[in-house]
Each structure stands twice: as C-alpha cells, then as structure tokens.
Design a protein around this nucleic acid. Structure first.
Length: 347
DNA sequence: AAGGGTGCCAACCGCCAAATC
DNA sequence: CGATTTGGCGGTTGGCACCCT
C-alpha cells in the first residue's frame, strides 16, 4: 500500500513566492519547526507542494542565511571544496553554514566556473585579477587540481598547500570554524554577520512587525503584513507578486530582513543546531510558548542523537566519500591521509 | 530612447535513497 | 517484501535587471 496520498496534487501553485505566502510559511514553521514538509501545505492552506515549501525555507526564508557578494575567503573555500568533493553542493554548503547549496551552486555556475576557465587559459602566468581589478598571485588554483590528478604524492603535497590558506583570523568569522560552526549557543545567528543592509533605517518598522506578530500569532498574516508593512498585496498571484512596484520590492526586502530576525532563529535541523538557536533566541523572548519549549527539547534530543556529530567526523566522511566517488582510482593514499592534520591550517 | 544581448538567481524538474505502509 | 510517498540533491530553466550599441 504505502503512505496515504498527499494533498498536494490539486491546484499546485508555481512561480515566485509572494510576501503573504512567505509570512504564512514562516509563521507555520515558527509554531511547528522545520520538517514534516508533507503537512505544511495541508495545514497552512498554501497551494504549494511540500517540496516548494521546503526549498523556499531552506534557500530563502531560513534565518542566518547570508546573502550578497561572496567574500574572497568563501570563494577560496568553495574552490577547494569543489576540487575535493566535486559538484556536491550540499556537502560544500555544510562548510559554509550561512550559504545555501543553491547559492553556492549559482555562484559556481555564474562566477567561479568562468574564473576557472580564465585561469586555465591564462595558465602560463600565475596571476589573476580579482573582483576589484587588482592583480594578485594565485598559485593554487588549477595547479592544485592538475597535480592531484597526475600524481598521488604530488597530490598530497598539493592538497596540503591548497589547504594552507593565508591565515587571517580577523576576517574569518567565528561560526565558520568547524569546531564552532554548529554551535551558536552564545551567538544569535545574525548578531555578528556583517550584512551591508540598505534597510537599517527601517529597523524600527521590522521590530514593530515582529512585535505585533508575536503578540498576535493567530491573526491572519495578510492583516499583520498589511498593517505593518503596508505592502500592496492585491490578488497575490505569483505573477502579480513578480510584477510588484519598486516600493513593494523595498517593503518586501524589509519583510525579508524581518524574517532574518533572531526571533525566528531556527536553522535547518539536519545541518546545524537549530535547537540551540531556538533556545537561545526564544529564552530571550517573553512570548515563548510551552509548545515552543517542547519542540525545542524534541529538536535537541533528535539532533543530539542523529545529527550533531563532531565535525572532524563529518569532515572525514565528506573527504573520504568525496575522494572515493570522484577520485577512486587514487583514493587509498588520500584516504590514509589525515584530514585533521592537513586542514589544521585551513580552519 | 529603444531594442537586443547577457548575467544573475529563485524556483522548478527529475532522479534517487530512505521511510512508510 | 513490494508498492508508494517523502525528502534531499544536482542540473536546468524562466524571467527580471542591467548593459551595450
């Protein structure tokens, strides 16, 4: 037999998400936590498939997501991890908790792939032009990959070199270190993320939105949203959402910024300590519900049991798996090499 | 100013493994 | 144990915004 058929076959809506839909989804996740996506469309009335809801949450609405330009360091990490793991964007994204796999994939396809091609075409001179037009030496890119493919011993050495990135503790966010990347106990997710926000001046509006939202969790999202954000919602079809005015876009970004607020500090429970964030943020919130606490304890137990493995193990798994699947012809020596040793400088 | 080309990115598609009945 | 659903992943696409001529 199998599972009962899901509701989502009827009248599935596609296309860009509207602010109203976002509000509904976030509101639901706020109450029930991420997961059990099958029930989300049914319980919220969203005419979206569960898959779409999950993607919207993980790629856009989930708090703690860093958007905008990739830093030089992030770019290097992506390049190195891509060389190690191949196009396993989810695995790569697990090393960059603030970035989504979709984000990294897009960045790779639009920027890095091009850059790699340029590097290969300019192979003879080991110089590269960065985004600011400045010339800098790039001895690792390309060279590292070629050496990896040709000689295991050389590859070992090259890997060590590649992983020995320039040490710059001041520019390396705390949460990106593996030992702490899954621990935000004392750090609200956005507290130390330096987002160049054009919406800072509207912080009060956001605060009001969140305040009212928390006070009236049962009121309709549309009412809350229209009262606080004054967004023209109209018919709220996807096409209309996509055709909103510039002002609407501005408000939409305010809304988006609000969703990033610490008040909703869940994280994807399969990849990080959503429970820790959930607790740390909700403990500071007077409107914390008993339901929320129960959820937190459930989440924490689940995470402790299933997903919160030491990162060194995760690294090993990623490394070994990546090597065995992408470079299986030369995997033995690489597997024998201790990743912890070779990455000690990397992080 | 207009039209075509290009870049970017959110969202979709299809596949697969795991879970469930 | 097989059928079915769900969740996750990587690849791809559609449409908007920007740039160039």
């Amino acid at each position: 037999m199998g599972r009962p058929p899901c509701f989502e076959k009827y009248g599935i809506k596609k296309g860009p998400w509207t602010p109203e839909e976002d509000i509904i989804l976030v509101s639901y996740i706020q109450q029930h936590g991420p997961g059990n996506w099958r029930s989300v469309p049914t319980n919220t009335g969203l005419m979206r498939c569960s898959k779409s809801c999950r993607l919207r949450w993980t790629n856009y609405l989930r708090p703690g997501i860093k958007r905008g330009n990739f830093t030089d360091h992030e770019e290097k990490m992506i390049l190195h991890l891509q060389a190690l793991l191949g196009n396993r964007w989810a695995a790569i994204a697990s090393y960059l908790p603030q970035r989504t796999d979709n984000d990294i994939k897009n960045y790779w396809n639009t920027h890095l792939k091009k850059k790699m091609n340029n590097n290969q075409s300019n192979d003879n001179n080991h110089e590269d032009v960065d985004s600011e037009g400045k010339t800098r030496s790039q001895p690792l890119k390309g060279q590292w990959e070629r050496r990896l493919q040709t000689d295991i011993q050389m590859a070992k050495q090259a890997l060590s070199e590649a992983l020995s990135l320039p040490q710059n503790p001041t520019t390396f966010p705390q949460e990106m270190k593996p030992s702490s990347s899954f621990s935000h106990e004392n750090h609200p997710p956005n507290a130390h993320i330096n987002i160049p926000s054009p919406y800072a001046s509207s912080y009060e509006n956001i605060s009001r939105l969140m305040e009212n939202w928390m006070k009236s969790p049962n009121s309709s999202a549309e009412t809350i949203f229209s009262n606080n954000m004054q967004v023209t919602t109209g018919g709220s079809s996807s096409s209309e959402g996509a055709q909103s005015t510039t002002q609407d876009h501005h408000h939409y970004h305010l809304h988006r910024q609000a969703l990033d607020s610490d008040l909703f500090s869940f994280n994807n429970s399969t990849k990080s300590d959503s429970a820790s964030r959930f607790r740390s943020t909700h403990e500071e919130n007077d409107s914390l519900t008993k339901e929320g606490l129960d959820l937190f304890h459930q989440e924490k137990r689940k995470i402790n049991m299933e997903t919160h493995v030491p990162l060194t193990l995760l690294e090993k798994w990623l490394f070994e798996d990546g090597v065995t699947t992408t470079h299986h012809e030369c995997n033995e020596d690489l597997i024998n090499m201790s990743l912890e040793e070779s990455t000690s400088d990397f992080f």
